[in-house]
Design a protein around this nucleic acid. Sequence first.
DNA 1: CATGATAGTGAGTGCTTACTCACAATTTGA
DNA 2: TCAAATTGTGAGTAAGCACTCACTATCATG
Lengths: 218, 218
Amino acid sequence: MNPGDLTEAVAAVLAAVEGAEGRLAPKKRAVIEAALLCFAETGYAATSTRSIAHRAGVAEATIFRHFGTKADLLLRLVRPVAARLIQPGLVEAQEIFAETEGNLEAKIARMMKARLAFADRYAPLVRILLQELPVNPELHGLLQDSVIGGLVRFLDIALGEEIAQGRLRPIPAPRFLRILASMLIGYWIARSMVAPGDWDDAAEIDVMAGLLARGLKP
Amino acid sequence: MNPGDLTEAVAAVLAAVEGAEGRLAPKKRAVIEAALLCFAETGYAATSTRSIAHRAGVAEATIFRHFGTKADLLLRLVRPVAARLIQPGLVEAQEIFAETEGNLEAKIARMMKARLAFADRYAPLVRILLQELPVNPELHGLLQDSVIGGLVRFLDIALGEEIAQGRLRPIPAPRFLRILASMLIGYWIARSMVAPGDWDDAAEIDVMAGLLARGLKP
DNA sequence: CATGATAGTGAGTGCTTACTCACAATTTGA
DNA sequence: TCAAATTGTGAGTAAGCACTCACTATCATG
C-alpha cells in the first residue's frame, strides 16, 4: 500500500464517520472531507470555517447546520475512528500476538507493521491527533481510555507469560508500551512528515523490533 | 533539579532571549514571559495577543512596539534557545561521548540524561516546539539545520569508531539518532505532559540506554 | 537643563471569526 | 399526493482578531 495515498485515507475516515452518523448528506460528506484535510494541514485552531466551506464547495452555514460548532466538527471526525477502529485494532494486535509463530521479535515486528498500516490508513487523522493532543484535553481522555488502557491490560498478560517462561526480562507493561510506541510514532513522523521519500518499512521495523527483543532478553 | 520548575525554565529562556536582544525593558521582559507560557499552554494559533498583554499586565500595543508582529514574537522566543543553547548542547554531548569512561551504554545514558535536563530547563519552549513543528515550516528549517545536521555529523564519526572496533553492529547515524530521540522525547512527553507524577529518571534512562546498547551489540 | 531617543499606552482601525436566521429546494413517508 | 422533515444557503451579526497611531512619560547624555 502506498503510505501517502490520501484518497484512501479520506475514504477510510468517511466510512468510520458514516458508521457513527448514518448515511451522510452529500454536502455533509464534503464538509467532513475538507475539514479533515484542512485540520491536518494547518491545525485546528488556525483553520477557519470559511476555508473549510470554500474547500468543500459549500456555504459556511452548511457546516453549522450539520455540526453545530467547529469544536463539534473536530470531535465527530476523531471519535468514530477512535471508538470503532482503534478498539478492533487492539483485538487485531492480540490475535497477532497469540497466533504468530516464532519468537518475541517476530511478534513485535508483526504488531508494529499492523499499527503502521493503521496509521497510514488514517494518516490525516493521525496528524490531527498529534497536533491537537497537547492542547485538547478532551481528545486526551478519549485516547487514554479507549487505547492506552486496553493495550496495557493486554500487554500485562502477554508479557507476563513471556516473563514467566524466562523468555523476557521483567518489564512493566506501561514502560514496554511507551518505548515501543515512541519508536513507532517517531518512525512514522520521520517517514511521513519530516523526510518523506524512500523508506523500507519492513527493514526499519525489523531493526526496531530486533532491538527491543534483543535488549529485553534475560 | 525539579523537572516541573516553571520559574527556572522561564528564567532560562529569558536569559537566552536577553543574550540575543540586549538588555530587556521591563515590560518587554513581561511580554516574553507571558507569551512563553500562553503559547505553551494553549498553542500559538489559539493564543490571542490580547491574552498575552493581559497576562503580562501590559497594553496590547506594547507587544507590537517591541515585536512588530505575533509571528515575530514566536520566532524571537524560539530562535535564541535554538541558536545559543542547542548548539553548545551539542558540544556538551560530544564531550560526554569522548570523556565518559566505560562502555557504550554508559555514554548513551549520560548523553540522554544531559538532553533530558536540557528539555526540563526549557520546558515551556519544548512544548511550544512540539506543538508548532508540524504546522510551522519556518521552525522546521531552524531545527533541521542547527540541531539534526550537527548531531548526525557527530554521530557518524562517533558511531563509526565503535563499529570499526567491533563494539557495535553497523547502523546508520540517522537511524540511531531517530530511535534514541524517539525514546527520549516519548519519555519526556509521558513524564511531563501525559502522566506527571513520580518518575525515576535515572532508572528509566538506564533501561532505555541499556536496551539500545544491548540491542546493538554485534 | 535642554534634547533626542526610548518605553509605554488608550483609543481606535479594518478585517476576520464563529455562528444565526429566515427562507428556498429537495426528499421522505403516510 | 401532499405535508412534514431534511438539506442547503445568502445575507447578515456581534465579538474578537492582529495591528496602528497620536500622544505622554521616562530617561540617558551633551
